[in-house]
Amino acid sequence: MALRDLEIRALVGRDRIYKKADERGLYLEVHPNGSKLWRFKYRLAGKDKRIAIGRYPDVGLADARRARDDARRQIQDGLDPVSERKRDKLVAAYRGANSFGDVAREYIDKMVKDGLADVTIVKANWILDQLSPIASLPVSELKPLEVLSALKRIEARGKYETARRSRSFASRVFRYAVATGRAEADPTAVLKGALIVPTVKHRSALLDPSAVGELLRSVEHYSGNQLTRMAMRLLPHLMVRPGELRKATWDEISAETAIWAIPAERMKMRQAHAVPLSRQVLQMLSELHELTGPSGYILPAFHTSRRPLSENTINQAFRRMGYSSEELTAHGLRTTASTMLNESGKWSADAIERSLAHVDRDAIRRIYNRSQYWNERVDMYQWWSDYLDALKLQGKGLPM
């Protein structure tokens, strides 16, 4: 006979567990402490099985019957309710352990193993912090609107470039989730036109030859730390990024071959880069070797030789010399070199781009260019150092 709520409420515990049947395999299990648990008994593949439905009164009579009917339909479809429940729990646990933040951190770990630069890893973790509103949500269930909402929060602070970079990072995380079977698609793909396009700000650089000559003379008379002055003397000649010079070590420098070999892990594009060393640069390195050689960083920090020169040291020196951040930055010296070398008309654009370590996306062409333009680059570096010396001496542009 079917149970009724009034009858169920009247049931009390006994010395042993006992059962009160409802209908179609549903029954109530009453424990000595008075707790009442719903169970559904069924037979599948010749075996008796049962499944727990819940505790009364948290699960009422009507709810227990609906759960029983759902289980019966699964059995009719050839499914085992116990196995299906285990699968659902595993899926729920899998989704719970695969939030956007979890997958993003796993993707960042992969970036570390792939050997990406420390600064790239730090930026990736910082961007993940910016995406905190979606970090706890299952990566497989995130919709474009939810991602856009997180990006718009960044935009609302006026951080248009950060929003753009965050969308790009999120896209890489979603693609990684798809590749590892934890998402079906990248919801950021439809958001490319939904963000404000940031205004491109070019790095401050000196482009007038007479201004470059004035800078070089000012550097020669710089009264601050000697290592800072050496860094400012070297940087215009080398065309490298400031971080690449700061972290240079003596074992990378070969005075015999006049080459500075920068390993791939220190380069922005993760490609090893060779820099021809002009006579002027070799002379400066010889002077520097007496101060910081023969091993370790060629430009160590002021307080310890175990670390390179501080990231802001060169720019701070430029500020003390009277140059504002709108006029000159250490990185902007690359723009100075690129502009003047192109304007000279003496060197191919490919040789200049290769000297700036701008990697060609065509792998075959990249290999060809590396060998094809080396001799031209050697000549170009020497010409560039000669030209800088002439600017420093005369304070005005000479005929190219």
Rank of each mutant, 00 (worst) to 15 (best):
A390K: 14
T304E: 06
Q316E: 13
S355L: 11
Y387G: 05
A272H: 14
A255N: 06
A71N: 14
K346S: 05
E256W: 02
L206A: 08
V30K: 01
R320V: 10
G96N: 12
E290C: 10
Q382T: 11
Y107P: 04
G78P: 01
R14A: 14
V240C: 15
S254W: 13
A97H: 03
T188N: 11
R157F: 11
N312D: 14
L79T: 00
K247L: 05
S149F: 07
L191T: 01
H202T: 08
A10C: 04
V91K: 13
T120L: 04
L341G: 09
I314V: 15
F302Y: 08
R73F: 04
Y107R: 06
L238Q: 01
E146A: 15
A92G: 01
N369Q: 15
R334L: 07
R50D: 07
N315P: 05
R233N: 03
R164P: 00
P308S: 06
H202W: 05
D251G: 04
Q280G: 02
E311W: 00
D251S: 15
T292I: 10
R361D: 08
Q226I: 15
R319W: 09
E23D: 11
L235N: 00
P276Q: 12
S371W: 05
I53T: 05
E343S: 06
Y176H: 14
D386P: 00
E287T: 12
N342L: 10
D15P: 00
S83E: 15
E290D: 14
P300I: 04
R55D: 10
M1C: 03
A150K: 12
D48E: 14
W260Q: 06
G224H: 06
G193P: 01
P133K: 02
V12N: 10
A2V: 04
E252V: 10
R105D: 11
L328I: 13
A264H: 06
H31R: 09
D129Y: 01
I262S: 07
K19A: 08
P399D: 09
I262N: 08
A117K: 15
